[in-house]
Amino acid sequence: MLARNAESLYWIGRYVERADDTARILDVSVHQLLEDASVDADTASRTLLHVLGINPPDGAPLDVWGLTELVAMSPETGSIISSISSARENTRVAREVVSSELWECINATYNAVPERQRAARRMGPHGFLSFVEDRAATFAGLADSTMSRDDGWRFLVLGRSVERVDMIVRLLMSRVGDKPTSPGWVTVLRSAGAHDTYLRTYRGALDASRVVQFLLLDRLFPRSAFHALLQAEACLEELDRGPAARIGTGAEASRLLGKARSDLEFLRPAELLDNLTGRLQALQTTVREVGEAVSRQYFHTVPWIEWNNAEVNL
């Protein structure tokens, strides 16, 4: 498939997932800030911004509204709105490889943003955030039911999976400073949509070690880092049909993913919390490197060539 379109699909996958996950993280954080008066709003907000990679402003202390503005509404990279419009831009330039239903889904979402934004400023962020989550779910459903399982689909899922690992890592990063018994761990589970599943799996016993274990290592839960890595790996395996694919892992991206996956796979659960920060950082680095490797291998896009006139004075 056209390299430029592959790149667009990969980024559509990433941006939609990013908008979704950011909305979930923000939704839960806002709830916690509102419910728990003991939390220092400014510090908590700044930690969250840091984890999401959004530059916190200097000056006035942040509260729920300020946080929402920055994470959801600002045009800055990493905000929900910027993710939605980037997803839409990428769809717009790759419209002939996504289904009309998918395009209409993203376009209608984008068109509805200003109205939802006004409502959120009036009535609080929850409505806006659940709107984003709903639209992301619609998108996923439409992608699932209208896209052929061809390379385009694989690049979309690859992007989504890579982003999912990244977001799980960011989510856990936001809590590494908490005590193992802190109620904050529940919010982590809620953000990932994993609370119910976790409760069913562990029968209600809540502690940091198990939460981290569940979100990083669970083989069955689709938002666990392990599951997402596995899925990304599967996509790459199917994409990589060159002759080099027969021996070892020729492609750098597959190698990186496989290594990260097996690091998690063969880790003793007891060791999980030792140097958690380092482990998360390593995972984040891997994600970035995978992105670069995929781009080198598949997206042979070239910048516009600037031509020079060869005519010179003789």
Binding site: I305, E306, N308, N309, A310, E311, V312
Partner: peptide
């Protein structure tokens, strides 16, 4: 005459 990409000639 022609065009090329790269430094000045």
């Amino acid at each position: 005459k022609g065009i090329y990409s790269g430094g000045a000639a």
